[in-house]
Amino acid sequence: MMLKKKNIKINGDTIFKYAIGSSVVVLIMLIVGIFVSLIVYSYPTIAKFGFGFISGHTWDPVTEEFGAYPFLIGTLITSFIALILSFPVSIMISILLSEYLKSGVIHNYVKSSVELLAGIPSIIYGFWGLFIFVPVVREVQMYFGITPYGIGILTASLILSVMIIPYSATIAYEVISLTPSEIKEAAYSLGATHFEVIRKVILPYSSSGIVAGVLLSLGRALGETMAVTMVIGNSHILPDTLFAPGNTMASVIANEFTEATSDVYLSALIEIGLLLMIVTAFINVVGKMIIKKFSVGMS
């Protein structure tokens, strides 16, 4: 190295700089490494089925014909229904905590219960769903005269929506709390009611943060495995109604990986993993664009 001696100073600053630099490098290498190894190990099916892997409707391990379309649809439907159901609830919780119950025993109680929801292991959600929630859904199905499976796409979406509430709610709460009191007071001084301040000042101000929280919860919903596997019915047939059993990409991998012995089968499961990663990345990129658009609109 041709560096002058005075430039090499080993002090806290330099060490810290290299430490953060190297952790970033490690992180990027990890992501790239995972991506590359997924591609390498799924190459046999990529070569064999090509695009047919995504558009194919048949998943038959016996004849080794693999099409992941039903699982792709299952993942997207359950995640988005969960998102639609959980979004209003999380927004209301965060507004309640930041605007109406700003402190006190109830505030702390509600806030920690929401945070606790995120800490419950997904297997617990799964068992709770299977033994407590599914019978309720079954009663409803019997009332409407639908085949009373109890489990299925809708049940999985409902469980998922509960599971992802804490992610969007806590982030929304944090950003709403960050709204400067000056602009809120300015709105009040112009005669705005509390509701109008929330609707026209606070929500627009914190919209990008709220979207970020929604994205995080969507990511969680897309990849959730255990709880979904237990209540979705694990059927390889494309669901025709919301009550029908279906399957998601993550739960197919969890179910079939241990006993997948043939090379093509294993490769097909790894390709599902690759597909799941691409879908998640794609949704993240789209979300970032939405956030950017919102922020521009603000300024």
Partner: peptide
Amino acid sequence: KSLNWPVGIGGKGNEGVSGLVKQT
């Protein structure tokens, strides 16, 4: 060991299957 089932719902493991049977 895994099949393309024409009908039905799937439970994970013996406990998953018996759990579904007991309540359906």
